[in-house]
Computed example of a mutant assay.
Amino acid sequence: MSENIRKEIISWIKLVATAFIIAFLLKTYIFQIAYVKGPSMEPTLYEGQILIVSKLSYRVGEPSRGDIVVLSDNLEHKDLIKRVIGLPGDNVDIRDGYVYIDGELLKEDYIQVPTYANEFQQSQVPENKYFVLGDNRPESRDSRSDSLGFVDRENILGKAVFRLWPLNKFGTIK
């Protein structure tokens, strides 16, 4: 093999290796792709939509009320997409079809049906945990359920920030 061909092969190997390392670092620390599965976030998100999730958002800050987050569900070993409702220290109550935070009615213009407490009792969100709900409350396994409950901060993987698919919904997520 000639010296020029050997140098060209080594050059290509370095290029491919660098691309893989950059892709790995971006996926691990900066962003990931998420697929919406199920109806729990309707009417905001629908099954089959593809989202970009910013991991960097929560490396430099904390989740805020109203953020749509991707979280790791240790019980079912899958990722879930939910909305942050209660922050650490908040007193969350659900009554008469509405959510109250520290006694104040939470304005939620992204839901279309009442919120029922199910088994959830008025509680204070523990330190380093979050209370999350799906926007389609009757079809959502969320913090009202004992099987999910309050979500540990370390289980929140990132903030859903952009919708890639379908193209007619392409853009930022609110």
Score class of each variant (00 low, 15 high):
Ser2Gln: 11
Glu3Lys: 14
Lys7Ala: 13
Ile10Phe: 13
Ser11Glu: 15
Trp12Ser: 12
Trp12Asn: 12
Lys14Met: 12
Leu15Ile: 06
Val16Gly: 07
Ala17Ser: 15
Phe20Gly: 04
Ile22Asp: 01
Phe24Arg: 05
Leu26Cys: 06
Leu26Ile: 09
Lys27Asn: 15
Ile30Leu: 13
Ile30Phe: 13
Phe31Met: 14
Phe31Thr: 01
Gln32Gly: 05
Ile33Phe: 12
Ile33Lys: 13
Ala34Cys: 02
Tyr35Lys: 12
Gly38Tyr: 00
Pro39Asp: 13
Pro43Ile: 03
Tyr46Asp: 01
Gly48Val: 01
Gly48Arg: 07
Lys55Val: 04
Lys55Leu: 09
Lys55Gln: 07
Ser57Gly: 00
Tyr58Trp: 01
Gly61Val: 02
Glu62Gln: 10
Arg65Phe: 02
Val69Trp: 06
Ser72Lys: 14
Asp73Arg: 09
Asn74Lys: 15
His77Asn: 15
Lys78Pro: 01
Lys78Ile: 13
Asp79Met: 11
Asp79Glu: 14
Leu80Ala: 04
Arg83Thr: 02
Arg83Gly: 03
Gly89Met: 07
Gly89Tyr: 04
Asn91Met: 10
Asn91Tyr: 15
Val92Arg: 06
Asp93Tyr: 03
Arg95Ile: 06
Arg95Phe: 06
Arg95Ala: 15
Arg95Tyr: 04
Val99Met: 07
Tyr100Cys: 00
Ile101Phe: 02
Asp102Phe: 06
Asp102Tyr: 04
Gly103Val: 00
Lys107Gln: 13
Lys107Tyr: 11
Gln112Lys: 14
Val113Lys: 14
Thr115Ser: 09
Thr115Tyr: 08
Tyr116Asp: 11
Tyr116Gly: 07
Ala117Leu: 08
Asn118Val: 10
Phe120Pro: 02
Phe120Glu: 03
Gln121Asn: 12
Gln121Glu: 13
Gln121Ile: 08
Gln122His: 04
Val125Trp: 00
Val125His: 02
Lys129Ala: 10
Gly134Asp: 04
Asp135Pro: 01
Arg137Gln: 11
Pro138Phe: 03
Glu139Phe: 12
Ser140Gly: 02
Ser143Ile: 06
Arg144Gln: 05
Arg153His: 12
Glu154Leu: 10
Leu157Trp: 06
Gly158Thr: 03
Lys159Arg: 13
Val161Ala: 03
Val161Gln: 00
Phe162Ile: 08
Pro166Gly: 11
Asn168Glu: 10
Phe170Ile: 07
Lys174Leu: 10
